[in-house]
Nucleic acid binder design. Structure first.
Lengths: 243, 243
DNA sequence: CGCGGCCTTGAGCCCTATCAAGGCAAGTGG
DNA sequence: CCACTTGCCTTGATAGGGCTCAAGGCCGCG
């Protein structure tokens, strides 16, 4: 059951770089918004808490009233085909914007896969607001371009990598998010299931498991538990051999 | 050999919708920019002609000085991996913006695959210009989001469709561009090779041919010549069964 | 302690990649 | 005007990666 509360602009952040993520597996920094810009943005926002995992934040085909900014937690964005197949298009982490719409309808669905806190902006209000605040509008543009680069990167991964490499890329990407990666132990705690990973990588849950087994056999990782995975980042990055 | 000339803002257009392409296979309309906005935008642009097919407009890893807007022709955007494999990320048609960069370097390469005319904007100038022209900046934001939706759509296609369906989607998408699709004869004239299509769909040229053979066998299309293909759009769309 | 969801492993098959070779069309030079 | 070249397209044979169906194991929770 989501609860909404008054906005506190304190921790408004939009995560993006003005370019391709630098060192692969490094978290992108926040865009530079001044305190007063954050405060203004906070004024057009509501905060909503999603405590229970797996609640729908918005739904494919539903009326698109809001654009969302994740403050805390992890969100999966997915599209469902008529056949019932599901493609996960992105996992979103704190500082990400989401809620693409078309002609007033959401194009995808969004669900939190960990207890989450989101800001939401009424789309019409936000549009007017951005037109009056070119610096903030610029931040949104930079973020959109950043997401576009990421989507293109994923297209490369899907188009040219086998499942093992796709998985390796995915794990390294996840390791960029401090909250889920214990730097000292090098242990990644996955917030999503094998099915989620499979639907993101364009494969099946079984194949994800098998790819994990293979990577483990190669000594690139070690499954402490199903969701806690010790990574050998250097080996994984060498294996990925991106670019 | 590209030739540059003075900008004439007459035909500046940015093709995008504020949402997911409506009827699949319909060309997106231009964003509403006033005549004076187009004129202002034209003032910060140069026009360049690329007569010979296959010239490089910009190159992965090269210093990113410009953002490009296609006035005429078709452009392929691709990324080359260390292994030499190539993934085509997009084909661009008139009204499209391209030239993503990171930290001053282009992330991908761009080449024209048909005689093309492009506007180019010096990136620094463009950024300053957009900050002073919120309506135009808004158009760029809408365009970026439009491209993001398209990239996500392609992710669905790559993640969940077999090659025949990917190809069908591709052909229907191409048929949206009047200049290459003879409405009365229902004949699509492909400006790109089988290799280009393969590298876009994440497969091989042989498999593209085989998929064409299969679709032709099903009566969904007919190869008049290798590049001229008569489409049965209704059947193809039914076969795609998107959403 | 038993249940249910998630994860893992196995067997068989199919789609697609790869390697190889031949066909076709356009352009070139004699 | 015709042989030759070259790039692109098509078809065939074969192998293998990944999907699907099936079943068993593990863990957290009631």
């Amino acid at each position: 059951m989501p609860r909404s509360s008054k906005p506190s602009s304190a921790d408004i952040r939009i995560r993006a770089t003005r370019g391709w993520p630098r060192e692969h597996g490094e978290e992108a920094p926040d865009l530079a918004l001044t305190g007063s810009e954050k405060a203004e943005l906070g004024r057009v926002a509501q905060i909503i808490d999603f405590r229970t995992v797996g609640s729908e934040i918005f739904s494919q085909g539903g009326d698109a009233a809001f654009t969302y900014l994740l403050a805390d937690g992890v969100v999966r964005i997915y599209h469902t085909l008529r056949s019932g197949e599901r493609q996960i298009l992105a996992f979103h982490w704190p500082g990400d914007l989401f809620g693409l719409a078309d002609h007033g309808k959401y194009v995808n669905s969004g669900e939190n896969i960990a207890s989450s806190r989101v800001y939401r902006f009424q789309i019409r209000k936000l549009e007017r607001f951005l037109l009056k605040n070119p610096n903030i509008q610029d931040a949104f543009l930079v973020k959109a371009v950043y997401d576009l680069r990421n989507a293109q990167r994923q297209l490369i991964v899907m188009g040219r990598f086998n499942i093992s490499r796709r998985l390796a890329v995915f794990l390294v990407d996840c390791s960029a998010h401090e909250h889920y990666f214990d730097q000292s132990k090098q242990i990644l705690t996955l917030p999503m299931s094998r099915y989620d990973i499979a639907d993101y990588l364009g494969t099946s849950a079984e194949t994800v498991t098998r790819a994990l087994t293979r990577l483990e056999g190669e000594g690139m990782l070690h499954r402490v538990t199903a969701r806690d995975i010790k990574l050998q980042l250097n080996q994984l990055k060498a294996f990925i051999d991106f670019d």
